[in-house]
Design a protein around this nucleic acid. Structure first.
Lengths: 161, 161
DNA sequence: AAGTTTGTACAGTTTAAACTGTACGTATAA
DNA sequence: TTATACGTACAGTTTAAACTGTACAAACTT
């Protein structure tokens, strides 16, 4: 089956990174996270680059995004100049939190955009369309905004659990 | 503010399609769904193509994916040769159901892949790594599989609500 | 003070996804 | 039976995302 440890960890990286791509990570970010997770000791950008066959610049961009999502932590070690990073290990908590936050933020932002359109539509007094058309558009906007409310509630409830 | 109805519906399409892209739709699929949603009568591929400025082939591919996700319904009308499609209108139900199903399916699939790796690792009897290394890998696999179980439960619970 | 290391901004290249146009098989209309 | 319409497979093109390599500023080492 498996001939060595590297083969096993590579297989795990391939499979687990597929899972966490679903949390809106790029393939490179997903593989980097998985590699850090399986590698107990913190890694430098150069080590990440060498391990994953990507440029240092690509690793810098990926690790920054992972850090912004609170999926990895920068580690300070005395006498070491290079930045060190390690994966956060409470997988369910960190991924679901990050994901729920992203959904709530984005949903709220979109709801506000639609609410703005709705406000502007209500303030129309020029005869640019019939009353029926205006009522229809208002109905659609209300439905769309209600949809956002429901999505927001769904993810807010998930956060409590 | 708005000068005509088309301007309003275009603005709504832009904003709402951003929301539903989050359900793993491509920008073209999201715009198509939103257009169908706002357009009460069912549309043909040619009408979709003309309305959204994309080729008929692109519309064929997009509408097929939306139908596969149960987000739109093909409508049969006597004496009409062209396929007709309309958006399903219970937004929360159709999007959340589609999304939860996708998560449960994908998570289950990945869990099985990792379980297969785990099974193979357990069957290792050749000395390809130390006992400590083997124990560590087994621990990681258990954690990753447990993570999948938790994600699956999370989305299964969402389905009940 | 000078040299080296480090991470990242930036510009250009590559890759993968999305697209278009054509060809084709099937179904319908004439 | 023949012609036309229709949706989609397929091949090639375009676009957007991801990448690499270089340059640079800041920090550290010598």
């Amino acid at each position: 089956m498996f001939e060595n440890k590297t083969e096993i960890t590579n297989k795990i990286i391939v499979e687990f990174s597929k899972t966490i791509e679903m949390f809106d990570l790029t393939p490179a970010e997903a593989r980097l996270f998985t590699y850090l997770y399986l590698e107990e000791k913190p890694l430098t950008l150069d080590e990440m680059s060498e391990a994953l066959g990507k440029s240092k610049t690509a690793m810098s961009n990926s690790i920054r995004n992972l850090a912004n999502l609170n999926l990895v932590t920068r580690v300070w070690k005395r006498g070491v100049r290079k930045d060190l990073y390690k994966a956060n290990t409470q997988l369910f908590k960190i991924f679901v939190n990050s994901y729920i936050n992203k959904w709530i933020d984005a949903t709220n932002f979109q709801k506000m955009s639609l609410a703005e359109i709705h406000k502007n539509v209500k303030q129309i007094n020029k005869p640019i369309m019939s009353k029926e058309e205006l009522a229809t558009i208002n109905n659609y906007l209300e439905e769309l905004i209600e949809f956002h409310n429901e999505i927001e509630s769904l993810f807010t409830d998930m956060k409590q659990d």
